[in-house]
Amino acid sequence: MVDEITAAPRNASMAMADLTASQLRGCMRSLLGILSLLLILMTPLAESAWAQGEEVASAIRRYREHEVSTGYYEEYEVKPRRMLPLVEIPGVRRGLFPYSPSAAKVRIRTRLADSHQSIRFYERARCEKCHIEQTRDIHTVRANLTCRQCHGGEPIASIDHYYSPMNPIRRHAYVCAKCHEGSSASFASYVVHTPNPADMDTRKSFPALFYVFWGMVSMTIGTFLFALPHAALWGVRELFIKEEKAEGETKD
């Protein structure tokens, strides 16, 4: 009896234990189910964890529709033809006046297949966080291009990496010709990220721009330093002329 009495709760507790064990197992199973479902759900989402994937262009217009590349890059000459000797293309062709627009810049990752190799937190940051100077060009500011429309998807190769689409020997065909149909190597030597022409650094990195800029600015300032006081003094002096009115005529 005693046994029975004691057995009952024991059985009950055993039943309880059984219950909790099976419940636990059920819980675990559904938890695993949810987790694996989450995992499956997250796989397509994984891409968007790249902060730079959010890039959206165009308040003014979308340029993707302007990308007219045929995809047949062989259509474009890699080496420039029919160019005058003056046409100097940095990295491709020496002209009479050798010149390299970005030679004077101190850059370290210029020949990597992935220029951001092992840069921490690169995935979570947007381009402009680290490259603020490069956001001030006409393509980005006015034409509303995104960085990747030129620099491409991951990995972003260094400009001078041999197989980089940005390498001057093929930049015109692989990058610029997407929008500027028929672009030549000479055209592609346009300095997209134009340095501030007034800057002293530009004297080294882009001397022609620097000197022409300051030449034009001094001409402008010189003109107005003369013309504004000249006009002002003239205006004042004329107030003191004594002029007789002619008869029968309106004022000229």
Partner: peptide, 27 residues
Amino acid sequence: YSLIATRIIPGWGLNIALWVHRIEAIL
């Protein structure tokens, strides 16, 4: 006509042309 122009001048000449155009227009 930048594509035709860069047959005669190098592409980086356009950077200069743009600034000359701006300053002269402002003047």
